[in-house]
Amino acid sequence: MKSLLFFDSMLTPKIVTFIYWLLLLVAIVSGLATMFTGYGSGAIFLGLLQLVGGAIGARIWCELMIVIFKINGNLQKLVDAKQGE
């Protein structure tokens, strides 16, 4: 508990997985909604594009967030090693 209160450990990386699944669900629902409620002949293509693009975009965004926190973790390990000398 102390590590969370004094920002020694990060809480956000644990939340990123939940956000990824939420964004993936939004991409699927919006892609399907575009396919089945869209007007015109290109609605199915646009829905598929939205579905695939949303899933890939959500994955890339979440991976970038995780990379930032892994960099922070590695820097914290370096600081701890330097202080232990």
Rank of each mutant, 00 (worst) to 15 (best):
M1G: 15
M1H: 12
M1V: 05
K2L: 12
S3K: 14
S3D: 10
S3M: 09
S3I: 05
L4F: 09
L5H: 09
L5F: 15
L5D: 04
D8V: 05
S9T: 14
S9V: 13
S9K: 15
M10G: 05
M10Y: 07
L11N: 08
T12P: 10
P13K: 02
P13N: 07
K14I: 07
K14T: 01
V16K: 03
V16D: 06
V16R: 01
V16M: 05
T17S: 13
I19T: 12
I19E: 02
I19Q: 04
Y20S: 04
W21R: 08
L22S: 13
L22K: 07
L25N: 07
L25K: 02
L25R: 01
S30K: 03
L32I: 10
L32Q: 04
A33I: 00
T34C: 06
M35N: 05
M35S: 08
Y39K: 12
S41K: 11
L46T: 08
L48S: 03
L49A: 15
Q50P: 00
Q50G: 10
L51S: 02
L51W: 06
V52N: 00
G54Y: 00
G54E: 02
A55W: 00
I56D: 00
G57M: 12
A58C: 09
R59S: 07
R59G: 06
W61Q: 09
W61V: 10
I66G: 00
V67S: 09
I68Q: 08
I68P: 02
K70L: 13
I71Q: 15
I71T: 10
I71R: 13
N72M: 06
G73R: 10
G73N: 14
N74M: 09
L75K: 15
Q76L: 08
Q76S: 11
L78W: 13
L78S: 15
V79T: 04
A81S: 12
Q83L: 13
Q83I: 14
G84T: 15
E85Q: 06
